[in-house]
Amino acid sequence: MHSSDHNQSTLTLHLPDEDATASLGQQLAPLLAPGMVLWFDGDLGAGKTTLVRALLRARGHSGPVKSPTYTLVEIYVISRIYWYHFDFYRFNFPEEFLDAGFGEYFRDDAVCLVEWPEKAEGCLPPADLMVRFRFAENGRAVDVVACSEEGQKCLKALRSGWPDAAG
């Protein structure tokens, strides 16, 4: 991942419960534009799929949002924008990303939401935003890291809408 990049900005948030995670999704969703790539990092059960579900619901998806652990990708079309939710947890080798042809999903008319991006390291397009979940006392700590100019714009807007944010 891009942890050594010097041009990154990070916003650290405390999410005490699932409602707070949903609130983050509601605030972040309208900031996402076609062509963006988001990486979600964190242990099993940390809240990655919960946040993706909140993002999709905030954009108007009313059906089920399930983790693509077995299918590897779930596809949603909302307002003519393709939303691809990937989960690479079951990958044994990064090249499985290439073998599956997933590179063609990363387009200008799509938003790609990627869980377990490290499992496709070196094959996966870079992130605009990285969202890192950590278990913390009384909930989760989440670092939202901007990794591109588009990511910086999102982070700036998100920071202004989250008054008690650190970073």
Rank of each mutant, 00 (worst) to 15 (best):
F102A: 02
A46K: 02
A120Y: 07
F88R: 15
P34E: 05
W39D: 00
G47E: 15
G47I: 13
R57Y: 12
I81E: 04
F40E: 08
Y82Q: 11
A58M: 04
C112G: 02
E96S: 09
P94C: 13
P125Y: 15
W116H: 10
E74D: 03
P125W: 12
D43P: 07
T49D: 10
Y82L: 00
L51W: 02
H61M: 01
A58G: 12
D108Q: 09
D109F: 08
Y84L: 09
F93D: 13
L72C: 01
K66M: 03
W116M: 10
V37P: 02
T49R: 04
P117G: 10
T49Q: 03
L38P: 06
T50E: 12
Y76A: 07
R107A: 13
A54N: 11
L44M: 15
S67N: 11
V65C: 13
A100M: 15
A33T: 08
L55G: 03
P34F: 06
E96D: 13
H61L: 01
G42D: 05
A54I: 11
A110P: 00
G42T: 07
A100P: 00
D87Y: 13
G35A: 04
V52C: 13
A110C: 00
V77A: 00
P94N: 07
P117D: 06
G35N: 09
C112M: 10
H61K: 01
I75W: 00
E104W: 00
R107M: 07
G35F: 07
G101R: 09
F86N: 09
L44F: 14
V114H: 02
D87I: 11
L51S: 05
E115A: 01
E118V: 12
L72Y: 06
A46F: 09
P125M: 14
